[in-house]
Design a protein around this nucleic acid. Structure first.
Lengths: 129, 129
DNA sequence: CCGCATCCATCAGGATACTG
DNA sequence: CAGTATCCTGATGGATGCGG
């Protein structure tokens, strides 16, 4: 897919590099789990287990994996306390906070249009089956 | 997954229904392709083929499929002209436009932090391998 | 031109188990 | 408690072809 995108934009000039990078970052972040984690973290500092409980429905694996990605991109900060049992804290960095603001917007939007969407679906489903 | 969510929130009281619906809608929309399509549509009216060209990298199938979903939720409006060859136009509805505003935020965020993220990645990747 | 159906490869992602 | 590794399935999504 990255290959494809490079191919597709290859004849567009010199913004190519930045564009494909942007697309990659956007695609990585525009994800159910990533966005939900960011939304839950908000301005708290949470441990792995707390996050797991808060995100609701996420598996151990996906949580670890998504957190690694967010950490790699510098959106969350990860603190490891070498105690036993271990303790790991996560919180949003400044860039993470900024992204969170827009994610909040999406959540607000969802709540606002809940009933309307529900209705739209009934209409859509009702006229075809 | 829907099942799981219902199960998980079952002991939370009566917001259960709305919550799981919200999650479902959010998950459907918080998707690479859906967000990119919304972003590209902006306040234009585009035909299927134009969209396909604009979104760049999306397959015929995914475009159809994602558009159906957006139409079903009432985020895009679909107009079919019974001409030959057929012509189908898509544009964002009012709710779609509202969502688009927040998507714009995400895009702006991506552009703004491009270099920082790139750097963060190098740092992250550089200290382990 | 657009949509739908089909086939098929892939990979996301869940379950499980073992380490520090 | 948190992370990593392995296995395995089922959904995702690409390619292709026909129909309207």
């Amino acid at each position: 897919m990255v290959t494809e995108q490079l191919r597709h934009t290859a004849d567009d000039g010199d913004v190519t590099r930045a564009d494909s990078l942007a697309r990659e970052i956007f695609s990585g972040v525009a994800t159910k789990w990533a966005l939900l984690i960011i939304n839950v973290l908000a301005d708290d500092t949470l441990r792995f287990t707390e996050l797991r409980a808060a995100v609701d429905g996420i598996s151990h694996k996906m949580l670890t994996q998504t957190l690694r990605g967010l950490e790699r991109d510098g959106l969350v900060h990860r603190t490891v306390y070498p105690t036993v049992p271990p303790r790991v804290d996560y919180y949003l960095t400044e860039p993470g906070q900024e992204l969170r603001a827009t994610v909040n917007g999406m959540c607000a939007w969802t709540r606002k249009h809940l009933r309307a969407i529900e209705a739209a679906r009934r209409r859509f489903d009702g006229q075809a089956p």
